[in-house]
Amino acid sequence: MKCRKCGGTAVLELRRHNAAFCAPDFLDFFRNQVREAIRKYRMFEEDEHLLVAVSGGKDSLALWDVLIDEGYRTTGLYLDLGIFEYSVESRRKCETFAGGRNVPLIVASVSEEVGAPVPIIKDVTRRPPCSGCGLSKRYLMNRVALDHGLGVVATGHNLDDEAATLFGSITHWRTEALARQSPALPSTHAKLVRRVKPLYRLSERETAAYAFLRRIDYIVEECPFAKGATSIAHKEILSRMEEVSPGAKHNFLFGFLDKARAAFERAEAVELRECVRCGQVTTGTVCAFCKLADQVKRRT
């Protein structure tokens, strides 16, 4: 198989682009896709200081790597979820990456902020672990950004993540989620920072290939709580679809973003207030994060 650009030996086939690339040309392709994502959604300015949420996995470290190389000023944020050896190892990957690239890394602990690590939160709430985990991460990303005077958080969500989320939202007709799904979410309140996903145009396999070719040391093992997760099942469904119809995933996601999302957004208007306890943004009186922390406190 030959590289579409230079004719050399290809290392990766991208059927959805009817192409194959050698390593250097694939890295160029990858960076160009990130540039296009940033440009199309005006994600941030060249001189803006970005908070990059990193987990130690391939996507977030690949994102951080590209942003550093593109010359952006970045600070990483690692959220220690307290998930046994997985968290110990993933934190180490982030610290090693940050040290090697000489970039700052903030570490925040869910255990300290919520009152318990994710495995205990799971037991206390009797809900899937991803529920308390996701809630805590979103809250803390926003709050840490505010605490440090940063106006935007970048996460490593990729095309497969976004397509799977979209698929789940449609099959369950979660219209509020459909209204909010975007590669770039603006700040709609003084205490809400922008959230952007510069990798949204790139598939999970492409991000993995980037991380591999750049010799980024990321955690390959999955979160122990991810087993059987619905999102993974949805990704498998979409991957089967992609197998028979290359390009189906990006047509699905990009088509939604270009043609359908606006209609859902118009239909779902929400009033935002500040939590009476912590001052962060909520639609209620006390935010879900404070309620979670209360629940943990009562039961531990």
Binding site: R138, N142, Q181, L185
Partner: peptide, 20 residues
């Protein structure tokens, strides 16, 4: 393997900031 996962979009209104 390249597929990771485990989180679904939050339920309920405006959780985009479950930042709530």
């Amino acid at each position: 393997p390249v597929m990771s996962g485990g989180s679904s979009p939050p339920n309920g209104p405006a959780s985009r900031a479950r930042v709530e």
